[in-house]
């Protein structure tokens, strides 16, 4: 229990640092930015209690907002992703997801990929809607969501492979 707790705190700090120091400065075509910090919410243990996840994703988003001057958009997007995570699990892995011990950082199967894809799309769509805050930008929002999702997933998969413990 305590070891997963410390691993999560470490992940929280490491992913935020990575995001702020490296990925915030990585922009493609001027507006596409990968946001792999949400890996914290994606990789959070399946069976641990939900209030902790919600509070920690609130803090995660708040710190991102502090650094990117964006009010509360990252906070809201992270909260929504954290709250709907169980439903995404149910959708991707079937009803009995709670009885399996899924570790996302093992290898990427179609189920895991679909889970990551859904999570990233939900997060980014909320984020860009709140960032634009106007209906007239809807086309822009969709394009940003699509392109940023691609880059976020690529960076997420790279990070997953990098932090994967070398077994076998």
């Amino acid at each position: 229990m305590s070891s997963t707790f410390f691993i999560n705190i470490l992940r929280f700090i490491l992913l935020l640092t990575l995001q702020i120091v490296i990925f915030n400065n990585m922009t493609f075509l001027g507006f596409i930015m990968p946001l792999p910090y949400i890996l914290f919410i994606i990789l959070y243990p399946v069976n641990s209690n939900k209030p902790t996840l919600i509070i920690s994703s609130f803090l995660l988003g708040l710190i991102m907002d502090l650094f990117s001057n964006s009010g509360g958009i990252h906070t809201t997007a992270c909260l929504i992703l954290a709250y709907y995570r169980p439903y995404l699990f149910k959708f991707a892995f079937g009803v009995s997801y709670e009885y399996q011990t899924i570790k996302l950082n093992e290898s990427i199967t179609p189920e895991r990929f679909s889970f990551i894809l859904l999570a990233v799309v939900i997060h980014h769509f909320t984020l860009f809607i709140l960032e634009a805050f106007q209906v007239t930008f809807i086309f822009d929002i969709l394009i940003r969501t699509l392109l940023s999702t691609i880059f976020t997933i690529i960076s997420c998969i790279i990070i997953i492979y990098l932090i994967k413990p070398n077994k076998r």
Partner: peptide, 16 residues
Amino acid sequence: LFLLLLSISLSLTIQS
């Protein structure tokens, strides 16, 4: 808890 934190974050967004 979710609704409480969501209202905080949304008010931050709208205020910004």
